[in-house]
Design a binder for these strands. Sequence first.
DNA 1: CTAAATTTCTCGACTGTCGAGAAAAAAATC
DNA 2: GATTTTTTTCTCGACAGTCGAGAAATTTAG
Lengths: 416, 416
Amino acid sequence: MLTKSSTELVRQRNSVLVLSVLRRHGALAHTEISDSTGLSSATISAITTELEKAQVIEKSEQQPASGRGRPRVLLRQRRDCGYLIVVIISSDAVQYSLVDYAGKLIDRFSEERSHDPAGAVRFVAAVRAGLLRILDRSKISQEKVLLISISSKGLVNSTEPVLVWSPIFGSEQIDFESALRPEWQAKVILDNETLLVAAALGAREEMVKGADFRSLAALSLGHSVGLGIVRRGNQTGQEISAPNFGHMLHMANGGLCRCGTRGCIEAYAGFYAILRSAFEVPLDTIPAKFVPVAELDKIAAKARQGHRVPAFAFRQAGLALGNGLSRMLSLTERMPIAITGPGTRYYDLLRQGIEEGLGQSHIVRMEGMPEIRVVADEQILVFEGHLNRALSVIDEDIVLSGVQGIQASATVQESG
Amino acid sequence: MLTKSSTELVRQRNSVLVLSVLRRHGALAHTEISDSTGLSSATISAITTELEKAQVIEKSEQQPASGRGRPRVLLRQRRDCGYLIVVIISSDAVQYSLVDYAGKLIDRFSEERSHDPAGAVRFVAAVRAGLLRILDRSKISQEKVLLISISSKGLVNSTEPVLVWSPIFGSEQIDFESALRPEWQAKVILDNETLLVAAALGAREEMVKGADFRSLAALSLGHSVGLGIVRRGNQTGQEISAPNFGHMLHMANGGLCRCGTRGCIEAYAGFYAILRSAFEVPLDTIPAKFVPVAELDKIAAKARQGHRVPAFAFRQAGLALGNGLSRMLSLTERMPIAITGPGTRYYDLLRQGIEEGLGQSHIVRMEGMPEIRVVADEQILVFEGHLNRALSVIDEDIVLSGVQGIQASATVQESG
DNA sequence: CTAAATTTCTCGACTGTCGAGAAAAAAATC
DNA sequence: GATTTTTTTCTCGACAGTCGAGAAATTTAG
């Protein structure tokens, strides 16, 4: 369904555009913004003075002029325009980060978290306490927090911040919106962790390749298996999705997965599955949910020494991943695949299986093997993805609803 | 990457919007257009007078006023504004249709086509001849043909009209753009057949459900297996894709497919595959590419009488389809599935397998079985999809490039 | 101290949308 | 038949947005 367009919409979009280039390149001068947006200088003037009045951006102090001519006046976001809290939920801890509007980290701490599977209610309470704690430590007023951006492994509702399925709580849903609503006015968004990795990698890729960038998939290997896909939209930036890849069917009536279904990819490629396979435990018994990495390192060492059974376990994991990726490629388009997560340390053992699994499908035989690269530092990518996404959401919200209101209150302040 | 917005863009979008409601609802009065677009009456006046000057739409003759008040002046597309040729390539024939700008069928004929596999070059020549023939029969000048919309089964390049892989010609690519360019100025687009079915069903669904419509998949069963997915875009109408579903990997090292790969879905669910399975021919021999439907009907009859082997063949086909669909759902979101094509006549035999295959995956166990409906009349849907897509492409092209130019030439005509 | 270079800002022109009200035209009413 | 009512279309002025050109500002080079 098409929808009508108006001149106000034009201004909104161009304002968001200005904020986004400011976000990408840091402090910029009038002319630079004009160059990188394609908007005329006059328009930049109009938009920036409006944003300045609304206290969203500010002119930097006079700085030592480099080169002749009238010195540039740099425009930058006002750090105190608003704040963002990032909550990264991982299997053994929850990390809270407070970030200002310019993307600068202000405070951060982690809290251990028990693996109590019946603790969804308690977990939500812990998150609420954590949020209040980081707010309290920084002495920032609660209204200044514009957005709470949460990430977790598992399956996320695409429209609302509801965790539909997670490795720890299973099908016990967690609705962060309603959990935080009485206490917080801030908008709450929830994303799958690997989706954020894909978003970060996609943004990096677009920085390098520019308009040539088409799409990219991020595969995260660890206790569970995650996939994020980022595609260049026709106009509206990037489209990102985080399918339920780890629990896509690998083989009908296959090994039992910790989700209770048989034959999931994770039941072959998750850490616990590799362990199970290496110890030749029957495929219908389900081992511990979380396996110490040291344990897996031992198996990997044996495999590298040439022991048949552990090597086979990694190979089977690779095959499941390769088959799954080939199915994903059959449904999308050829795209490079970036592998991240703790599982990358075993990539030497997985590689052959992955490539063989990929090669078993028509699409790969026809179009050739996709580019596969290993990217370490998943944690950094997750945080980077949070910032990319959350800050652009904030920018949009400010322009959409805020500018007039904030501007009005600002002028009142001036005159008062 | 965001891009700048301008007032001209606003006008373009709103013009396209006006044309699209005119296309959906037929001839409309000023006020009706205003109501269904949300644009003000003044804007409608501006846009329609411009389009009328450009000879794209026209005012209808005075008609018997129904109700009091000033009688309505209906606006409708000018049929002679431009023409569209639809080319539907199926396994045994090529159908050519000439359609006017209002979507009215003017002429149509089919041409048999040989299954000569080495005949890609000859096939292209036949298509060129067919196009000239339909043009000649109707006495329409070639410049008035604005678009040639082609469809085929198989895999299609997403940006250019290139048939990348097809059941008949295999990997022998056909580039319709370069094949028709010297002769035709018209734009050429090529779409997968099942994509068009999905587009048509999606449009119908949106008519009924309105904003509630989210997404839908069309599964076409026949000699080959096709899938089309239509999703509601955030603003820009619908997003449609036609993945390589028939040749998605069903089972590693499985039955040999006619594409030369082992274990494709089609190698279990294509007509030839069901035949092979019912006759207990080894899975690595590849039977005739096209199986007479009568042959399959016989097998189906036996299966319905309770014979074990043919019933098993259909069941295996259903399992392959169900597993594949479950994998598709793991990568997208829950959506209804519409089954079309000649294979629907065996749906009673396939159904159990499909449902069992779907039920083997985590996503279906968690979210429940997707709605499955059987839709006959695939041919009609294909044509409907052609019209939906092609005419809206024409609308956009006219507004984007045409209006100024046509308008200019029109005013010259007037003054000359 | 002046000229050149460079950046920012401002002004008028142009395009687009909108709301209000005028104009048009047929049905209803007196 | 004249007048009123109702409905639709068209037009005008107000307002928002972008753009190009040129003025204003300000520093460096000579």
